[in-house]
């Protein structure tokens, strides 16, 4: 699964430009799902049809992971060919200094900064620029509105992995792997790879409207409380996938939360409950779709979220796949 994770995290896909990620996913799930379609906003919706099983009531289940990643967008080009930019999604300016970014066509740029008035000044995005190495404006092929993403290859640290865009390519990888490993299910399972999560859960909103699920589970990352002087939080890396209770945007459906926890216990898989003070996931948008959806979240504990070097534990990832396969093989209990 590490190959798949590497391929997905290294793909280019800031919000609104998820094409490369979508093509990669299509390639990996073809043959493992009954049908696939791409909707008006670019969400990839893949259905694995259920096989009737006696004694199990079939339900329509939506799994969601978002394909997009945070990035930057060119807002202005100056006379010398330096590119001013704005963030796409929640970008911390501290992580930009010294970073390299890549455009859709493969052009690479480095991020520079105006000389600060005070040496310890907190960097502001308005005071930064991208230098793509163009000698002048005339030789520059970029235009206002072009987007770039972090450039950073995955590093396999053994038990743990570090890469850009684990948020939420790790969720995409888990969904792909689940689609591959899940041989049969009594339910109609929609694997939905959403767009534009980082700019406001937009793909989840429209895809949920189209899918009309009974139950939904978003697979996304969560932060942890296990690094030096972190904000107090009970989630740590390697202690199992996290089952969301609450984040800033939603309260998970208690039935879905318990269904996940009971399944983990039945399968003997480690898990932890998660209460996240900041951030939210696609499940927030799905929950209030139409007349309401029982929605929950399976989270992968991730350190250094929204930096070019996020970190996950490989066991958590594998256990998340096992949990989802187990969950989808049995009856829905909520």
């Amino acid at each position: 699964m590490k190959e798949l994770i590497k391929e997905l995290t290294e793909a280019y896909g800031p919000s609104g430009n998820e094409d490369a990620v979508r093509e990669t996913i299509k390639r990996h799930i073809a043959g493992h799902v009954s049908e696939m379609r791409v909707d008006a906003l670019g969400n990839l919706i893949a259905l694995k049809k259920g096989q009737p099983q006696s004694g199990i009531e079939p339900r329509k289940i939506m799994l969601a992971a978002h394909m997009d990643e945070i990035g930057v967008i060119v807002s202005q080009i100056d006379e010398k060919g330096f590119l001013r930019f704005a963030p796409v999604g929640g970008v911390n300016p501290l992580t930009l200094l010294g970073s390299r970014v890549i455009f859709a066509d493969g052009m690479i740029g480095v991020i520079g900064r105006e000389r600060p008035e005070k040496p310890d000044e907190f960097p502001k995005i308005e005071k930064m620029f991208i230098d793509v190495g163009a000698p002048d404006k005339e030789h520059l092929t970029r235009k206002v509105g072009d987007m770039a993403a972090f450039l950073r290859p995955l590093a396999d640290l053994g038990q743990r992995l570090t890469a850009k865009a684990f948020d939420d390519r790790i969720g995409c990888a888990i969904l792909v792997q689940t689609a591959q490993e899940l041989e049969t299910t009594p339910h109609d399972v929609y694997f939905v790879f959403t767009v534009q999560e980082e700019v406001g859960l937009r793909g989840a909103l429209t895809s949920a409207f189209g899918v009309e699920p009974d139950v939904a589970i978003a697979v996304d990352i969560t932060t942890t409380g296990d690094t030096p002087e972190a904000y107090p939080m009970a989630v740590s890396l390697g202690a199992g996938p996290a089952i969301k209770v609450k984040d800033r945007g939603m309260l998970a459906h208690p039935g879905v939360k318990n269904w996940l926890a009971e399944t983990a216990e039945r399968l003997g898989l480690p898990y932890q409950f998660e209460v996240l003070e900041a951030g939210t996931t696609d499940a927030m948008a799905i929950q209030t779709s139409r007349a309401g959806v029982a929605a929950g979240v399976l989270s992968i504990p991730t350190r250094y979220a929204h930096t070019p070097s996020e970190m996950v534990d490989y066991n958590d990832v594998q256990n998340a796949v096992k949990l989802l396969v187990g969950l989808l093989s049995g009856p829905v209990k909520i």
Partner: peptide
């Protein structure tokens, strides 16, 4: 508008 129903380009 673009988020209406199943999405509108």
């Amino acid at each position: 508008i673009h988020l209406s129903r199943e999405g509108v380009p």
